[in-house]
Design a binder for these strands. Structure first.
Lengths: 96, 96
DNA sequence: ATAACAATTCGATAATTATAGAAATGTAAA
DNA sequence: TTTACATTTCTATAATTATCGAATTGTTAT
């Protein structure tokens, strides 16, 4: 994993709102059976009180950094954490 | 560990040059016995080809994020990685 | 004390970005 | 095929920041 990719992920998680969005996605993934319409933009928007265009922007950043995977399901967007990439990032912080 | 602290660390590591500096510090810590004058600004400056004021700025960011600990030793600055904080950051990425 | 070197602060600038409102696009139901 | 709702794109703006040159401060040796 090269510096560029790592720092891109770090940047994606460096904005508080974006980090919260990421965590919301993770939490929704945890609890929800996948048939439910969980963790789409509209939903997160309500919870975090951020405008839709901003959420959309943040989702794209997280997605570009490969930290989440998004998928359209009807009118909604469903997002899930890309566990593999996250674990790569974690590994990059193992210094010893 | 709250969002603010985590995202501050993420931001500190989100700039490629700063990330490299962090890694240089870590590597120097590894190899050098602590009597040597390793990992100070001047040294890193040479290796990464960045201006001294910029290095200084980056060191402060890393330091403010608690990722490194700096100490003046004579004319030089000695830096070392704060392993404890780094491991906290790593833990924040353990999602399961 | 002064010269030499290391690091920081100051001041300025260019680039990036978080955010929102307005407009556009996609999707499903009526 | 309208209507309604969800998401994205466009456009603009305010805020942040990476960077450097110049000036300053701190430290050591002469």
């Amino acid at each position: 994993m090269d510096t560029k990719k790592i720092t891109k992920m770090m940047k994606a998680l460096s904005n508080p709102n974006r980090f919260e969005i990421f965590m919301e996605i993770y939490k929704s993934n945890q609890q929800a059976n996948f048939e439910d319409e969980e963790c789409f933009v509209y939903d997160v928007m309500q919870r975090l009180n951020i405008g839709a265009p901003t959420i959309s922007h943040h989702l794209k950043e997280l997605s570009n950094a490969d930290l989440i995977i998004t998928e359209r399901r009807g009118k909604h967007i469903v997002a899930r954490v890309n566990e593999e990439t996250v674990s790569h990032l974690r590994d990059a912080l193992i210094l010893d």
